Amino acid sequence: MTAPIRVLVCDDQVLVRTGLVTIIDAQPDLEVAGECADGQAAVDLADRLRPDVVVMDVRMPVLDGIEATRLLAGAAVPHPVKVLVVTTFNLDKYVYEALRAGASGFLLKEAPPTQLLHGIRTVATGAALLDPEVTRQLVGRYAARIRPTGSAPQDIPLTPRELEVLRLIADGRSNSEIAAALQLSRETVKTFVSRILTKLDLRDRVQAVVYAYRHGLAS
Rank of each mutant, 00 (worst) to 15 (best):
residue 1 M to P: 03
residue 3 A to C: 05
residue 4 P to T: 05
residue 4 P to Q: 06
residue 6 R to D: 10
residue 7 V to L: 07
residue 10 C to P: 12
residue 13 Q to F: 11
residue 13 Q to N: 13
residue 15 L to M: 14
residue 17 R to W: 14
residue 19 G to D: 13
residue 19 G to R: 12
residue 20 L to A: 02
residue 23 I to D: 04
residue 23 I to A: 10
residue 23 I to C: 08
residue 27 Q to K: 13
residue 27 Q to H: 13
residue 29 D to H: 02
residue 30 L to R: 03
residue 31 E to R: 14
residue 38 D to S: 06
residue 39 G to C: 01
residue 41 A to Q: 15
residue 41 A to N: 14
residue 42 A to C: 02
residue 44 D to M: 08
residue 46 A to G: 10
residue 46 A to D: 03
residue 50 R to L: 13
residue 54 V to E: 04
residue 55 V to F: 05
residue 56 M to I: 08
residue 57 D to H: 06
residue 59 R to S: 13
residue 60 M to W: 09
residue 64 D to F: 14
residue 72 L to P: 00
residue 79 H to Q: 12
residue 80 P to L: 11
residue 81 V to F: 06
residue 82 K to T: 15
residue 82 K to E: 15
residue 84 L to M: 08
residue 84 L to K: 04
residue 85 V to F: 06
residue 86 V to D: 03
residue 88 T to M: 14
residue 88 T to Q: 04
residue 89 F to E: 06
residue 91 L to R: 02
residue 93 K to F: 09
residue 94 Y to W: 09
residue 98 A to R: 04
residue 100 R to F: 05
residue 100 R to V: 00
residue 102 G to P: 13
residue 105 G to E: 07
residue 106 F to C: 09
residue 109 K to V: 13
residue 111 A to V: 10
residue 114 T to E: 15
residue 116 L to S: 02
residue 116 L to W: 02
residue 120 I to C: 06
residue 121 R to K: 12
residue 121 R to N: 08
residue 122 T to V: 14
residue 122 T to D: 13
residue 124 A to P: 10
residue 125 T to S: 15
residue 125 T to C: 08
residue 126 G to V: 03
residue 129 L to Q: 05
residue 131 D to I: 12
residue 132 P to K: 12
residue 136 R to W: 08
residue 137 Q to P: 01
residue 140 G to P: 07
residue 144 A to P: 00
residue 144 A to I: 00
residue 145 R to Q: 09
residue 145 R to M: 07
residue 149 T to W: 01
residue 151 S to G: 01
residue 152 A to H: 12
residue 153 P to W: 02
residue 156 I to P: 05
residue 156 I to L: 11
residue 165 V to C: 09
residue 169 I to Q: 04
residue 171 D to G: 11
residue 172 G to I: 02
residue 173 R to T: 00
residue 173 R to V: 00
residue 175 N to K: 08
residue 175 N to W: 00
residue 176 S to L: 15
residue 181 A to T: 15
residue 187 E to W: 04
residue 188 T to C: 04
residue 189 V to T: 07
residue 191 T to R: 07
residue 191 T to I: 03
residue 192 F to A: 10
residue 192 F to G: 02
residue 193 V to L: 09
residue 194 S to F: 10
residue 194 S to L: 10
residue 196 I to Y: 03
residue 197 L to I: 11
residue 197 L to G: 08
residue 202 L to I: 12
residue 202 L to Y: 08
residue 203 R to C: 01
residue 204 D to M: 09
residue 208 A to P: 05
residue 211 Y to G: 03
residue 215 H to I: 00
residue 215 H to R: 02
residue 216 G to C: 00
